[in-house]
Design a protein around this nucleic acid. Structure first.
Length: 823
DNA sequence: AAGTCCCAAATTTTT
DNA sequence: TTTGGGACTT
């Protein structure tokens, strides 16, 4: 059975109820049910909910977990079949990268030209596809390391085996190999499982699909125990597939009926979460996708008071953060809980602006996602110490901390140790204990290394004598690790010490140090406390599965959302994935969704002008309210915005004389010429023809649409195209052509006068990213005029980047193209 | 071996 | 603008 469950239709409930039903009707024992999820969080929640339904006792479901945790379980039982011992260690990404780096260097390859990171990603991709070294297509294998990609992959796997380690990919790859090569083992699992349930099926990758198919296939083993076949039930939503970039194959879900002939397909389309307006907006948007199975959400909840989805425009990202902050405070005054509000961003760099603003406002917020607790440097270091104690052969952990804190053990000494260890066929830690007895090393490193080796021996002896939490504390203390951070005067140091304490505290929940390590290798997340009332800030990706009364969606601009890179790399399907992401964002809202876009955003420290996202165009008008800038602006009171005054909007590119709803259309049209700069600003490679023509076509389409609809010539689309075609033109030309649809003089005049009167400096500057080989018309000492900063004197010129000491705004670095000769 | 400076690069993220 | 890594210097 395939359950296509739209957003908010009760997907998890279907799974949990089904399992509870199977148990209650005694169709199977808990141990005969295989239930897989993607995240530990989902697995945990499912366990809890089944527990509630069945009435306690959930421990009896040994096969409910993530793909990876079940993979580990299987692999531990049959490790020897793939050349591992059952106590193998699981590598994290850090270890993986360091190992690859060593291999690249061992192969005498230039590790700058072939970064370990890239290879890790590449190999990850192969493993996601279930490809062993021999199965990697020739072309793919050749693309890395001067054609030695395959050899490198092989060498990596060999090294893992000798280290008795597996990476995350292997947790799926090895079980697949075991099932394939050992029918007796597979038969065992066939006899065991009567029901297989899969959550978020649209997110499965090829490897996971193969894994499932092996387990689900019919077999003699099953028939022998009187089973006709296994019952497979997958739940998912093709419209919420947003992980294509990490190997998810939407095709798995689209193909389900072919994979399982005769399967029942059920669509859940009744939404219990959002208002009709939100659903209408989301439905309109997603209907622009071609690759989908097609579902239309509806709701029985109807209320005349429901708010439409709102779209607001802002001048720059600072203002966006400021205005959203105001809105949040306003809602709070009306009695809304901060816990019921969330800001969902496309990229994590957007978060900072909100954090900064909320700190000033004293508004509680929490960032969800980001670097996880167990991924922090200090935690990984501490864990490496613990790993060395529990698993003395864990060379990667040893390498990580052998000179942390600094002990005077540099490259030369470690090189010596490595050679020695290889010769003696010993793990590094054991080798360290021996090498210090000889005279290979210089006195200083020798005694340092001797200390390290002696310490680890001593700690290891305490493993069975002391409470593991006390031992952990002792290790961190005696190794000098705590001291290292205490001596560190950087801003993060106190937080890191706090994290270390928290780590030791959390060990208390486990019986022993090894048990703790086994757990955290797989569960890399730490529970967030939801006790304090706070606004959530997170990426759209991490918002999947959550819901909030009020959702803010900032940054709906071309290049950011849809993200330029998705478009460049993924083409149409990339765009469709971005659209699904937008769909996910909208459908997180229960009562209220507020979208924002701005015309200037700082990217990599440079201000860029942006145009509204095409997704805004795709929202049906019936469900959307476009907030006039004056409306949203006036709402905060004349003084509320720090005295900018309404004239500020006059400088705004999209609020020229006849700004009318639907505003974004006009905005897009009137900025048609801007597409040129936006595109170039994002650093598109013009060498790739497809991208260039794609963008060009869109720029034209947008402008044409506007013209045909309103009969007003708001811009010169041919000018926009000219801009694209003539890519080597100096930016100033682009700027001039833009002048036809936008009066920069007028804007500048009003703007600078407003600014002169205002109490606060305006940081924004219109700067597009540079094109390296261009040279400025300006030289040091020239007078220049900038539409946002006014007049000033040129102080430095680097290519087409000019630093100007503005009379009023101070020194700023801007692009030549945004300057005019001044006086 | 450790500290300093400069350059290139900068989505999304789980296990 | 920020960051990390690598080359360079102390």
């Amino acid at each position: 059975m395939l359950v296509l469950a739209g957003a908010g239709t009760g997907k998890t409930r279907v799974l949990t109820t089904r399992i509870a039903h199977i148990l209650a009707t005694r169709r199977a024992y808990p141990s005969q049910i295989l239930a897989v999820t993607f995240t530990n969080k989902a697995a945990r929640e499912m366990k809890n909910r089944i527990g509630h339904l069945v009435g306690g006792e959930v421990e009896g479901m040994p096969w409910l977990g993530t793909f990876h945790s079940i993979g580990v379980k299987i692999l531990r039982r049959h490790a020897e079949l793939v050349g591992l011992k059952s106590n193998f260690t699981i590598l994290d990404t850090d270890d993986q990268i360091r190992l690859i780096k060593q291999l690249i260097q061992a192969e005498n390859l230039d590790d700058k030209r072939w970064p370990a990171r890239s290879f890790a990603n590449l190999m990850d991709g192969w493993k996601n596809k279930g490809l062993t070294p021999d199965q990697v297509p020739e072309g793919d294998a050749r693309a890395f390391a001067n054609g030695r990609g395959r050899e490198l992959y092989k060498a990596y796997q060999a090294r893992l085996t000798s280290l008795n380690a597996a990476d995350f990919g292997d947790l799926l790859m090895h079980p697949i190999a075991i099932f394939r090569d050992h029918p007796d083992v597979l038969a065992d699992y066939h006899r065991r499982f009567r029901y297989i349930l899969v959550d978020e099926y649209q997110d499965t990758n090829v490897a996971q699909y193969l894994w499932l198919r092996l387990l689900a296939q019919s077999s003699d083993a099953r028939r022998a125990v009187g089973q006709e076949g296994v019952n497979v039930c997958c739940v998912g939503d093709d419209d919420q597939s947003i992980y294509g970039w990490r190997g998810a194959e939407v095709d798995n879900i689209l193909r389900f009926e072919r994979d399982f002939p005769g399967a029942t397909v059920i669509r859940l389309e009744r939404n219990y979460r959002s208002t009709a307006h939100i659903l209408g907006a989301a439905a309109g948007l997603i209907s622009n996708n071609e690759d989908r199975l097609g579902k239309t959400l509806f709701t029985d909840l109807r209320d005349a008071d429901d708010e439409k989805v709102s779209v607001s425009a802002g001048w720059d990202s600072e203002e966006e953060a400021r205005a959203i902050g105001e809105e949040i405070e306003q809602l709070q005054r009306k009695g809304c809980k901060l816990n019921d509000m969330a800001i969902l961003v496309r990229a994590s760099f957007q978060m900072r602006e909100f954090e900064d603003r909320f700190v000033t406002l004293g508004l509680n917020y929490r960032v969800i996602g980001g670097p996880r607790f167990y991924e922090r440097q200090e935690i990984r270091d501490a864990l490496a110490y613990f790993r060395c104690v529990c698993q003395p052969a864990d060379d990667l952990a040893f390498e990580r901390i052998v000179n942390t804190p600094k002990r005077g053990l540099g490259d030369a000494a470690l090189q010596m140790l490595h050679t020695f260890a290889r010769r003696e066929q010993l793990p590094l830690l054991a080798a360290a204990g021996l090498i210090v007895q000889g005279d290979e090393l210089k006195p200083r490193p020798r005694s340092a290394l001797a200390d390290v080796a002696r310490n680890f021996t001593r700690w290891r002896d305490q493993l069975s004598n002391m409470r593991h939490t006390d031992l952990a504390e002792m290790i961190l203390e005696e190794s000098g690790y705590t001291e290292m951070w205490q001596a560190d005067r950087s801003a993060e140091a106190p937080g890191r010490l706090e994290n270390l304490k928290e780590l030791v505290r959390s060990m208390d929940d486990y019986d022993s140090m090894p048990a703790f390590l086994e757990h955290i290798a797989l569960v890399m997340d730490a529970e967030q406390n939801s006790e304090t009332d706070a606004v959530s800030i997170m990426t759209l990706h991490s918002a999947k599965g959550l819901e909030f009364e009020t959702v803010f969606l900032p940054g709906w601009e071309e290049g950011l959302f849809p993200h330029q890179r998705s478009l460049d790399e993924g083409g149409r399907s990339g765009l469709e994935e971005e659209r699904r992401l937008a769909y996910v964002g909208l459908t997180r809202g229960k009562r209220r969704v507020k979208i924002w876009f701005v015309s200037n955003r700082r990217i990599h420290g440079m201000w860029q002008s942006t145009i509204p996202s095409r997704f805004l165009d795709e929202l049906p008008e019936a469900h959307v309210d476009v907030l006039e800038p004056s409306t949203s602006y006036g709402g905060y009171g004349a003084g509320g915005m720090g005295g900018y005054g309404a004239s500020r909007w006059d400088a705004n590119a999209f609020s020229t004389s006849s700004y009318q709803t639907p505003g974004w259309r006009r905005a897009q049209a009137s900025q048609g010429g801007e597409t040129y700069r936006g595109g170039r600003g994002q650093g598109i490679s013009y060498g790739e023809e497809g991208i260039q023509s794609g963008s060009r076509a869109r720029a034209a389409a947008t402008a044409d649409k506007y013209i045909s609809r309103d009969g007003v010539n708001a811009g010169d689309p041919s000018g926009a195209r000219g801009g694209f075609a003539g890519r080597m033109e100096a930016p100033v030309e682009a700027n001039r052509s833009r002048g036809t649809n936008q009066p920069p003089r007028k804007g500048a005049g009003l703007y600078s006068s407003a600014r002169a009167g205002g109490p606060r400096e305006i940081e924004g500057q219109l700067v597009a990213k540079s094109v390296q080989d261009e040279v400025s018309r300006f030289k040091i000492g020239d007078r220049a005029f900038h539409m946002k900063f006014g007049h000033g004197t040129v102080t430095t010129v680097e290519g087409n980047k000019v630093t100007v000491d503005f009379d009023k705004a101070g020194e700023k670095r801007v692009l030549d193209g945004f300057l005019e000769t001044g006086n």
